[in-house]
């Protein structure tokens, strides 16, 4: 249960919001779904992001900016209109149910990074950048945001920035038993190809030991090669995420399943190589 004397703040500027969250026990409120799931008594105040003008999706040149207060549903609708962000939208449209997708915000999901997140793997594979505000505004890669531990500090995520590169093909797979349940893991692959040869690759998996893994060995193997059956089978040997056993699945089973998903994903991408 949240505290009965909870204090609400409705700032109009990000500077004001950042100042407010520097107080102990005061956190940001986007859609509120995660706050209600955990409901810690330690929360003394909530800073609503509704008046910060962070609910937008802009496409300018080869950049797409997604304001952090945008909901999953709004990103899905943008994609339906523009045919952009298909890889990200595949993951988002399978995450949670329709009424929850109308509430869950991109910023809230990034800040919390639950183990079942469907958002992180595709964004990391697409080499997303994020603009954050703490003492100063800065733009950093999402990977740096995780690696350097900024995610654990008090800050406000203003927007995600993605490159709209027609040379990049990608896909995402979530291990679920029914469509919108929490995935056991999510694997995402983004490849840049030129004349059937992979010139760049980014491969990430979430839901693993340590929450996420950048699969660099598999990437190095694939770069400079053609995406054919033989190379896909070889790439599988370089893809070895580590899991933790739980009450349902052993770590070995999850690793095996992840390898199957990874090769299936590469097989699907094989048909779309430019």
């Amino acid at each position: 249960m949240l505290h009965q004397n909870l204090e609400w703040f409705f700032p109009h500027t990000t500077e004001e919001a950042v100042k407010l969250i520097s107080q102990q026990g005061v956190i940001l409120h986007g859609g509120g779904t995660r706050i209600l799931k955990t409901s810690p008594k330690s929360i003394k105040g909530l800073v609503d992001v509704g008046k910060l003008n962070m609910n937008y999706i802009h496409h300018s040149g080869n950049k797409i900016s997604i304001g952090s207060a945008s909901t999953y549903d709004e990103v899905i609708r943008f994609s339906a209109r523009t045919k952009k962000l298909s890889m990200l939208v595949k993951a988002l449209s399978e995450a949670a149910s329709t009424p929850l997708r109308n509430r869950i915000t991109i910023g809230g999901s990034l800040k919390d990074f639950p183990i079942w997140s469907s958002l992180y793997a595709p964004l990391l594979a697409l080499n997303a950048q994020i603009e954050i505000a703490d003492k100063h505004d800065k733009i950093i890669s999402l990977e740096e945001y995780l690696e350097t531990g900024i995610i654990k500090t008090k800050h406000l995520i203003k927007r995600i920035i993605l490159e709209d590169d027609p040379q990049v093909i990608g896909g995402v797979k979530r291990f679920v038993l029914i469509r919108f349940e929490y995935p056991l893991f999510t694997v995402a692959v983004a490849l840049r190809t030129k004349q059937n040869i992979i010139s760049d690759a980014r491969i990430f998996i979430t839901g693993v030991k340590g929450r996420y893994k950048h699969c660099k060995r598999a990437e190095h193997f694939l770069i400079g090669k053609e995406l054919n059956d033989e190379n896909i089978q070889q790439a599988k040997k370089h893809f070895a995420p580590k899991f933790v056993s739980d009450y349902k699945y052993s770590a070995e089973y999850k690793e095996h399943a992840a390898k199957v998903f990874f090769t299936d994903l590469l097989q699907e991408l094989k048909g779309t190589v430019k």
Binding site: H29, G32, L36, D48, N102, R103
Partner: peptide, 13 residues
């Protein structure tokens, strides 16, 4: 106009 789970929405917001 969009469906939401009212149990997952804080009224003040």
């Amino acid at each position: 106009g969009k469906p939401v789970n009212s149990c997952q929405v804080l009224a003040m917001s």
